[in-house]
């Protein structure tokens, strides 16, 4: 009961702010007579989204499957790489500079290659999603795994713990918050990368909807698609925040 009230209290400011923004948008565009092809009214966008909810839902589903697929593959790869680098420091010395350089390249720059390699189907989107995630997870987790001080490691060593034992009992749990940060950043990146890749070439998905609607001067569909996409990635983000509480329960 009390927690429900608390939740309400913390949700109130954001609800108020959102409502204020939407009203400003709605009445601002009306008052200034802004045409829909420049900035549609929120009510129209919502009506368009709801009116073709099945269509948008289907396209969003494709995009989310690609984003989540890429996210999962990228995360697992990133985690494995980080663990390998912690266990084999030589690997870190060799691969880290390369990882930093690749991470510095915006993942959209790889879209052309990925489309050529994996075709227009879902696999190219999953690949670009994974690419957008892997280095964020790697870099974050690696710094997290290194967080425990030498003293804690020494304590475990004095108990006779092996390298793997130290990793499992100390470094992995200690690296959890950093991993979660990496996952959060990665999820947002993979969704956007997937949508961009869909725009550049795809059979379906929200990005392709946006691209086609733009070509056909259908700005309401563009905005509705963006709105739906944002709702989708917010939902994913929500799942991750809940996961965060599970993975980092002790804070």
């Amino acid at each position: 009961m009390a927690s429900g009230l608390n939740a309400l209290r913390s949700a109130l400011p954001v609800a108020a702010a959102l409502l204020a923004l939407l009203l400003l948008w709605q009445f601002g565009t009306t008052a200034l007579d802004v045409p829909a092809y420049i900035l549609p009214k929120p009510a129209e966008i919502l009506a368009t989204a709801l009116g073709r909810i099945g269509f948008f839902g289907g396209e969003l589903y494709v995009t989310l499957v690609e984003a989540v697929g890429g996210f999962l593959i990228g995360s697992v790869l990133g985690i494995l790489l980080a663990v390998a680098m912690i266990l084999l420091p030589v690997l870190e010395v060799m691969l880290m500079p390369l990882a930093m350089v690749i991470n510095a390249v915006p993942s959209i720059a790889f879209v052309p290659l990925v489309l050529l390699w994996f075709g227009l189907g879902m696999s190219s989107k999953i690949a670009i999603g994974a690419l957008a995630v892997v280095f964020v997870v790697l870099l974050n987790l690696l710094s997290g795994l290194k967080r425990p001080e030498a003293e804690s490691i020494n304590l475990l060593r004095s108990f006779g713990a092996s390298r793997l034992g130290i990793l499992w009992r100390l470094q992995l749990p200690a690296g959890m918050p950093a991993l979660v940060t990496g996952l959060r950043v990665g999820l947002a990146r993979s969704t956007i990368a997937v949508i961009v890749a869909e725009m550049m070439g795809a059979y379906s998905g929200i990005g392709q909807v946006i691209y086609q609607a733009t070509a056909q001067v259908d700005s309401l569909t563009v905005w509705a698609a963006v709105f739906v996409a944002s709702l989708g990635s917010l939902a994913l983000y929500g799942v991750l925040v809940a996961l965060d509480r599970k993975l980092v329960w002790w804070r």
Binding site: Y37, I38, T214, A215, Q216, V217, S219
Partner: peptide, 30 residues
């Protein structure tokens, strides 16, 4: 994702080399 028709209609650009017959028809319909 640059739509010439939108840019010309909004006044951001004066002229445009736009998509073609279909694009002009869609724009007029919208």
């Amino acid at each position: 994702n640059i739509n010439v028709e939108t840019l010309v209609a909004s006044g951001a650009d004066t002229f445009g080399v736009a998509s073609g017959t279909e694009g002009v028809l869609y724009s007029r319909e919208k």
